[in-house]
Computed example of a mutant assay.
Amino acid sequence: MKSLQAAESARLRANQLRLGYGDRLVVDGLDLDVLPGTVTAVIGPNGCGKSTLLRALGRLLKPRGGSVLLDGKRIDRMPTREVARIVGVLPQTPQAPEGLTVADLVARGRHPHQAWYRQWSADDEAAVAEALRMTRMTDLAERTIDELSGGQRQRAWISMALAQGTDLLLLDEPTTYLDLAHQIDVLDLVQHLHAEAGRTVVMVLHDLNLAARYADRLVAMRDGRIVREGSPAEVLTEELLLDVFGLDARVVPDPVAGTPLVVPIGSRHRS
């Protein structure tokens, strides 16, 4: 049972959430509080409902039951523009029109602030410039998205979310298809955004060791339910890894970060 204080202070709150596609129920009766100023990583095996949960938190998927609260208000009853000014969502495989430049992509993040009586302004220009600066994309502003490396593309999409002026970011597997160096680059950027402006971040990650390094809290899911949540040390135990992932592993201190480090055993080294 969540404490009343945690529920009242949560930026996002899932309450008895039921989610699915067609005849298939993916998430059933899920409760989750995302506290302000935290970085939360959702982990779990493929098909457990991680991305589905993130889509519901960002109002991209309508719940079959339960509710999602954003700053205490039901997100499905809030105006779309209001939600877009608060929550920035980066889907798993975002697509941009062919030939679109980085600057044009990032400028699209200002759409929630536009109206028939308020067109492009100096404030919009400043917001785009600041988003490019924070993601180190200023020098690439006139490049097309097609020309960029995988890591640069991810930074461009994060720039667009930042240009929205949101302080709550939902990132669905932001390191997918990236080599390890670019994974670190993107997660360093996320950590910088969190540290510099206190942004609240929820991200789905597959790499357990990177999740432990970069997140304040981990949420472990299996079969559409939360099995355990808490600090990386509280969640990443050898018992949980076997139970949730079917993974026989040892958990030792990361020699660099001091966070839990998952070392799979595998049949070759099993005694």
Rank of each mutant, 00 (worst) to 15 (best):
H206C: 06
A126W: 10
L171V: 08
H269N: 13
G88F: 11
L54N: 06
L60E: 13
V68W: 01
A127Q: 15
E196Y: 01
G258I: 05
L12E: 00
N209F: 02
L61R: 00
V256A: 06
L168W: 08
R118K: 14
G224D: 12
L162A: 02
A7C: 15
L25T: 14
L218R: 05
E82Y: 07
L178A: 06
L171A: 09
L132S: 01
G151Q: 02
L236T: 03
A6T: 14
P260D: 06
D179S: 10
T200E: 11
V252I: 13
H182N: 15
I158Y: 07
M134R: 14
A96V: 09
T259G: 04
P264H: 09
Q5N: 14
D146P: 00
E8K: 15
Q114Y: 14
G37C: 05
L148G: 06
P253M: 10
R110E: 01
Q114N: 04
R225S: 13
T176I: 15
I43H: 03
V227H: 12
L170S: 06
L169I: 12
T38L: 15
G29D: 11
R153C: 13
L208P: 02
K73Y: 04
R222Y: 09
P112G: 03
L261F: 03
G165P: 01
Q16C: 06
R136S: 15
P255D: 02
R268H: 15
A211W: 13
